[in-house]
Design a protein around this nucleic acid. Structure first.
Length: 564
RNA sequence: CGGAGUGUAGCUCAGCUUGGUAGAGCACCACGUUCGGGACGUGGGGGCCGGAGGUUCGAAUCCUCUCACUCCGACCA
């Protein structure tokens, strides 16, 4: 491919709207252009990368026995009404009407359609298990699209759905997909981690997320330093704390004028934050609910939302509601004498001689103790905090560490959440109708391209891993327009390399050397070969890997071998 | 949806406070010089200053409304 014939609009300056590195580089290297918020056009170079990623997915999925299909982006409301999601889904689902005023949506996902396909066409246990996937456009009207294609509204996703007679079969396919995803990410040379994930409102037995490790990632993942334990922050737990020491201090009410935050109270009383308990009041279904945490711990909202009586989504109670429930402002709350349902984090329940608010503005207690001063109902002791780096892993293997990641894949077991309401039964050996179990497996394809760049770049530009690079070799022909020798050598080289199966981008533009080199670094093709009169006089060209800092002279005839 | 910010040439931005003929750099076109890490000179093309209304003799500039985009938060299989 000749660069003069290809639209690769590189930018010297950083676009004002791009903050994260991948977004910036994708714009600067001419991979994508924004059309509207969260909507992008993929330009020729970017599309080639996307296609290579897709190709790897197809190869690995085929190896795992999945069959490719293609389902529509526009879907009828009827199917979503059957599953109950037409009304459950919020405004992130874009709805529309056709000319007959029939309702449709732009598909955010395809469970309904694939289940409909299944129930129409598959009727016997002998056809199970089966596993369908597609690589298709999704649309989710995100409240806040950001980070370029990382969180776009329209994006490409590989989504797969499997159907099973029993849990054992579902487990087997689930494991196969877990392996498949790991192979895919390894093939792309990505550093990643598969972590246990919260199953969300769908429920189901297992769920794993695949995260590409990157500091710019939106998610926090937790892993044990000395074992395989890994989970996302929403789900991660620490080992239970040691049993609570016996009380030694007397309960004392102290004036703490103007000291409201844990930091202030802890400094004022010269006690570590871990000895101060913080009490949060949340909106509840039947009135406010309190949660008590250690002062140095943060509330885990996902865990808190699962507590009975807490509203979903979780909301902190307004100051007026706090005053009504406890008789004070939020800065002086404490569990002692609090007359609303109170959940206590397991770590908070393990502290003795602690500080807490006195439910009177400007006063706290010191030397407070559970049981002696405040009743503690064991069924109200729960895990509702975010783990911290250094916390002990739940498997007892040692400390936990935290890292940021980009969620590029998610697999989970759906059970019968869709197959049951859509009545997708098949007959078993005895002729009885059985509702199959389903699994669901997603990879964000466009997001994956951004994640690859987050992990593979330097100050000059992108550094594509070979398996996904838009081209294998970038031939920089210097003075191509004027030098007959360069043209002849380049054409020969191009033919030879392409015959050997390399895809080659030839920079035949009438540009100065500096411009070509800078663009080459920005675009990030793994192998760069410079052909110029200077080298040709000695019968050599120059080779430079994208990560190299020096050129190597290579005899023209030996280049193909060098690239192997 | 709450908070903040930005809209001026293809890109990055100045001009706005204090109203008076719309600018710079890069990019683009032509010619010349140059030619191995983002060249230089000369000339040129390109703008409904996001949109609408208002104030004014006169609005990119002041006022009101509106739209778009970005950031922070909330939300998110």
């Amino acid at each position: 491919m000749r660069q003069s014939q290809m639209l690769i609009p590189t930018l010297k300056e950083n676009p004002a709207d791009a903050d994260v590195i991948s977004h910036r580089l994708m714009l600067r290297a001419g991979l994508i252009r924004q059309v509207a918020s969260g909507l992008y056009t993929w330009l020729p170079l970017g599309l080639r990368v996307l296609r290579r990623v897709e190709q790897i997915l197809r190869e690995e999925l085929a190896r795992s026995g999945a069959q490719e299909v293609l389902m529509p982006v526009v879907q009828p409301a009827e199917l979503w009404e059957e599953s109950g999601r037409w009304h459950k889904m919020g405004p992130e689902m874009l709805r529309m009407q056709d000319r007959h005023q029939r309702n449709f949506c732009l598909s955010p996902t395809h469970e309904e359609v694939v289940t409909d396909l299944f129930r129409r066409e598959v009727h016997s246990y002998r056809q199970l298990p089966c596993n369908f996937y597609q690589i298709q456009t999704k649309f989710r009207d995100e409240v806040r699209p950001r980070f370029g294609v990382m969180r776009a509204r329209e994006f490409t996703m590989k989504d797969g759905y499997s159907f099973h007679m029993d849990q054992e079969s579902l487990d087997a396919t689930y494991r196969e997909m877990h392996d498949c995803y790991s192979r895919i990410l390894r093939r792309m040379d990505l550093r990643f981690r598969a972590v246990e994930a919260d199953t969300g409102n769908i429920g189901g037995a297992s769920s794993h997320e695949f995260h590409v490790l990157a500091d710019s990632g939106e998610d926090v993942i937790v892993h044990a330093l000395h074992s395989d334990y890994a989970a996302n922050l929403e789900k991660a737990t620490a080992a239970a704390p040691p049993t609570r020491p016996a009380p030694t201090a007397a309960l004392t009410r102290v004036a703490t004028p103007g000291q409201e935050s844990i930091a202030e109270v802890s400094a004022f009383l010269s006690l570590p934050a871990a000895r101060c308990l913080k009490t949060l009041i949340l909106d509840g279904v039947d009135g406010p609910v309190a949660v008590v945490l250690r002062g140095d711990h943060a509330l885990n909202e996902i865990k808190a939302q699962k507590l009975p009586g807490v509203t979903v989504p979780l909301r902190l109670a307004a100051d007026t509601a706090v005053l009504e429930a406890a008789g004070c402002r939020p800065g002086s709350l404490g569990p002692l004498g609090l007359a609303i349902p109170t959940w206590v984090d397991i770590e908070a329940a393990a502290v003795a001689d602690f500080v807490c608010g006195a439910n009177t503005d400007g006063f706290h207690y010191t030397g407070a103790n559970w049981e002696r001063d405040i009743p503690l109902d064991a069924t109200r002791v729960v895990d509702v905090r975010n783990v911290l780096p250094g916390d002990p892993a739940p498997d007892g293997s040692g400390p936990l560490a935290l890292q940021r990641g980009i969620e590029v894949g998610h697999i989970f077991q759906l059970g019968r959440v869709y197959s049951a309401p859509l009545a997708a039964g098949v007959l078993d050996r005895s002729g009885a109708s059985v509702i199959p179990l389903m699994g669901c497996y997603g990879i964000g394809v466009t997001r994956m391209v951004a994640a690859i760049i987050e992990q593979n770049h330097d100050d000059a530009g992108i550094i594509w891993p070979r398996p996904v690079a838009p081209f294998d070799v970038h031939v920089i022909a210097l003075n191509y327009a004027k030098s007959e020798a360069v043209r002849t050598a380049t054409e020969g080289l191009l033919q030879e390399l392409e015959q050997l199966g390399f895809s080659v981008l030839l920079d035949d533009r009438d540009e100065r050397a500096g411009v070509k080199f800078a663009d080459a670094d920005l675009i990030g093709i793994p192998h760069r070969v410079t052909v110029g009169d200077r080298g040709l006089a000695q019968g050599v060209v120059e080779y430079r890997g994208r990560r190299d800092t020096e050129n190597q002279e290579v005899a023209l005839a030996a280049l193909a071998e060098r690239l192997r």
